[in-house]
Design a protein around this nucleic acid. Structure first.
Length: 365
DNA sequence: GTATGCTTTCGGC
DNA sequence: TTACGGCCGAAAGCATAC
């Protein structure tokens, strides 16, 4: 049976949620901002609606730049409310789930889903189900989204991209080759800048050129497993299944300093609240970790990290504090610029299995 | 040589 | 002219193991 994978992506998510909450703003430029608190307008744009995008306002640009570009355009500047968007996201994912067998959330506003068995491999039936998913998100949440269908995750994701904004692109197996053909290899999931450059040295720039290259030819440059993947993915045959999400692999907290510094103790003191927040998140999930990282973003916005992996899982406050001071000291010695932002990351997570109470023990059965 | 695991950096949202 | 978040997983680089 032909495989059918879908990808759904809500259009300009944060800004569209704000429009739904207040429909009177939807013909004006809407800009959802992450304010860092360092100065009145320091921070960046989280996302903007298409009206704002007409003026060059998009994710990642500084708020002051966005305001300048929208001077006299009657913009709506909104503070990002992550908890609000998370709640909408949860409801959307449940809606999608109600139409499909397997769903894999890959971001706050996007997910893969599998329609192979429910459509019996028929792309017309699959398109009908996908349309119902789109319609139910519109009816229940008043949000538009873009949907792509294809025979693999790589194809489905590229199809939903091509469907933006608000459309649906169906790429059945027989049109996969022409759909992928002209795309640059960098668009393929799993191909980063280095891999793209190495492919370029072999004269391979488009997905079609990659698709027509035998895996054996790629092995010399990429090793057996990446070579095999590149060959499959470029033919729309990457086998990676849509799978239900597992627990997150890492947690982090990062803050912008009130003023730049290289002092590890100063970094630590400004991080206190973030550290406490991370600790409470870990506690609420009964989670410990083996790897602790200190993150520093320097004045030129480059990122430096140092990490330490423990023999056994830890979560003990004083162990963490002293290790962090160590790591930030290493960082400040290794760079010649000041820190602008600092953060903490924990990874290599494990769930604590010590039994807390009889009730909880019974609960786990 | 290829796989595996750890650390650091990159890049998408 | 410059301007500049917070979080995650993927990618890349390197060392070691087989």
């Amino acid at each position: 049976m032909a495989r059918v994978v879908g990808h759904v992506d809500v259009d300009y998510f944060y800004a569209q949620v704000e429009e739904v909450e207040n429909p009177t703003i939807k013909d004006r430029p809407v800009v959802v901002c992450v304010f860092s608190g360092r100065t009145e307008d320091s921070g960046v744009v989280g996302t903007a609606n298409y009206v704002a995008r007409e003026f060059g306002v998009k994710s990642g640009i500084p708020i002051v730049v966005a305001k300048k570009r929208l001077q006299g355009k009657d913009p709506v500047i909104v503070r990002m409310d992550h908890a609000k968007y998370e709640a909408v996201s949860d409801r959307i994912m449940e809606l999608v789930r109600s139409h499909v067998d397997v769903i894999e959330k890959t971001g706050i506003d996007e997910a893969f889903f599998d329609l192979t068995s429910s459509s019996h491999g028929d792309y017309k039936i699959a398109a009908g189900i996908a349309t119902r998913i789109k319609n139910s998100i519109l009816e229940e949440e008043h949000l538009t989204c873009s949907v792509g269908l294809g025979r693999s995750k790589v194809v489905a994701k590229l199809a939903s991209d091509a469907a933006k904004p608000g459309g649906m692109v169906v790429v059945p197996p027989e049109t996969t080759e022409s759909f992928l053909g002209d795309l640059d290899v960098i668009k393929l999931y799993g191909v980063g800048p280095k891999t793209a450059e190495a492919l370029g040295e072999l004269g391979i720039r488009t997905v079609a050129e990659l698709a027509h290259t035998e895996a054996a030819t790629l092995e010399g440059s990429f090793g057996k497993s990446l070579a095999h993947y590149l060959h499959e993915a470029s033919n729309g045959l990457d086998a990676d299944p849509v799978k239900e999400n597992e627990a997150p692999a890492q947690f982090s907290r990062i803050i912008t300093l009130k003023s730049d510094t290289t002092d590890p103790e100063e970094a630590m003191s400004q991080l206190a609240a973030a550290e406490a927040d991370l600790r409470s998140k870990l506690a609420s999930k009964n989670t410990s970790f083996r790897t602790l990282s200190a993150i520093a973003i320097l004045t030129d916005l480059s990122t430096k990290t140092r990490s330490k992996t423990f023999e056994a899982p830890i979560n003990d406050l004083s162990t963490v504090r002293s290790a962090l001071v160590d790591l930030f000291s290493q960082l400040s010695e290794s760079v010649d610029r000041e820190f602008r932002r600092v953060g903490i990351r924990v990874s290599d997570l494990s769930t604590d299995t010590s039994q807390k109470s009889l009730a909880e023990f019974v609960e786990r059965l």
